[in-house]
Design a binder for these strands. Sequence first.
DNA 1: TCATCTTTTATAAGCGCTTACAAAAGTATA
DNA 2: TATACTTTTGTAAGCGCTTATAAAAGATGA
Lengths: 318, 318
Amino acid sequence: MMVTLSDVAKKAVVSKMTVSRVINHPDKVSPELRELVYKAMKDLNYVPNFTARALVQKRTQVIKLLILEEMDTTEPYYMNLLTGIAVGLDKYHYALQLVTRNSHEIGPCDGVIATGMRIEDYENIIEQLEPPVVLFGHNDKGYDFVDVDNEKGIQMATQHVIDLGYNEILFFGIDLDEPFMQTRIKGYQKMIEKHNLNSHLFMMKNSSHVSQAKATKQLEKDEERIAFVCASDRLAIGVVRAAQALGLLIPQQVAITGFDGVFLDQISSPKLTTVRQPVMEMGEALADMLLQKIDLDGERLGNRIFQPELIIRESTIK
Amino acid sequence: MMVTLSDVAKKAVVSKMTVSRVINHPDKVSPELRELVYKAMKDLNYVPNFTARALVQKRTQVIKLLILEEMDTTEPYYMNLLTGIAVGLDKYHYALQLVTRNSHEIGPCDGVIATGMRIEDYENIIEQLEPPVVLFGHNDKGYDFVDVDNEKGIQMATQHVIDLGYNEILFFGIDLDEPFMQTRIKGYQKMIEKHNLNSHLFMMKNSSHVSQAKATKQLEKDEERIAFVCASDRLAIGVVRAAQALGLLIPQQVAITGFDGVFLDQISSPKLTTVRQPVMEMGEALADMLLQKIDLDGERLGNRIFQPELIIRESTIK
DNA sequence: TCATCTTTTATAAGCGCTTACAAAAGTATA
DNA sequence: TATACTTTTGTAAGCGCTTATAAAAGATGA
């Protein structure tokens, strides 16, 4: 039924070791034998047994996803991240386990992916971790991480509405004191300075109802042609509703850009111009990076910054 | 470092076998020895090695999720299902792999969860499966499944708008010839008949833009007080936009109910009355059921029908 | 040609656990 | 008290693979 290393060895008339070596260190085997073994593997349709390998290598085949911020599991953003990680892990027959701040212990595992750290978490949690770690989101403590270029993302959105001739540009941000938010603010302000415009920052809870209220207040001042650069699609959707309720034309009188590009942007009407983060790909990258790091015994691997993409839709262009 | 069976055995002064038996068949061990072993396990903080067990039991520790319908992975519905399954599997150190219709082979695994089957798929795919299977969604071929009570869900929604005094009630469905849709239609029609009302069925693609167009056409006929019972939150959102664009008051002139209760319902304004499916719980149930089935060597386990919940919000009640 | 070094291949042991079987202990029957 | 059971515990083997180490084969130089 199941084809094992021994079967392949027998078929190729070599020892088990040679077959194992062909799999793990092909360069240490002479080309002739190597070919012989490859052929035998193909003929017999050999699939290596991950479980056996894990046992002898004392691996758990489990990696933990440590989520340190309040996560709304219904938020598509996290779901996508999770799916991306799962896809990455599955390639190596790894299982994923979720751990939150409430969990008492992390438990046995081969590696950890962490997200949503606050400053104090590095000392208290991340540093204490025994197995290799990869972080989701920028840090300057020397941990490997995966992130999107937040500054560039907001700059693209801001530049875009400037190009459309808007010069009253408001930034709607989320009132969280976290790096990703600071970077987005920076992106906005740099662009505003560069074009000698006035900066208008509004920070609020990440809720479409809150942003709707805030936007209504601004739009009622009846200045003409206001653009809203929002730090999330959720905020952007609230602004859309505010404009529509006041009977203003999108995108002629009001232009709106979102951020994330995960699901929400598509169900809005008009469809949202947004800065898309490749969340699933980032999840996969996290998994790839961590697994590589495990193989390399925790060696430093560097960071991976993903480029966001400006997706232009009806909320800014007719 | 790592505590093994042998360590526990030594500590409890018994053989490895006795410890193994305490874990797997506690009833086959005398109470005194059992307690002794439990104490030793606790003292040493013993965690069984799943990998070793999997090896000797010839398990792969992999289960496959077979998705037979076109799935939009950005759809929060599926993400939640996936997350639920992952949570369920993690408890037993199982890994999840995704398989779609395009995949040539299913590959080695201990069990399969399948979703989105059409009639012909049972013969062609499901029946061919070697390992235990659990289905997501109703079937009458004798396979174990997990589903939500679709009929009851729509009935609750329909009854709710009837109770609000609406007697012009339209059903907005998805034009897919699948059991879940037929059952939702049935739920609507039964309720309509019971109250001697007129049935109005509209089937369409599951898109908020399509439902917006269709709803606009109906609302322009300017009959008063129309209720829309929708087969998805996505359709419901389109109807909301149609009503708002025509300046009609929700819920005074137009009442709207959705279906699913996964994320979309919350970002709408007004917030949607919806029939919530416990998707994550259902995913977890799928995993639990399958793992139990694997342990019981594929034995029939029966079905699990989850009760939906009517969540009443601003789209039907002031 | 033989000793010495390098490359290539094989042998043996064991990862932590369970299955199959054997031994020991306890219980009942005559 | 010996016999045949039943229940409880222990021994040995091995799942499929890898690490460590030994053996064999080639290559090099005197």
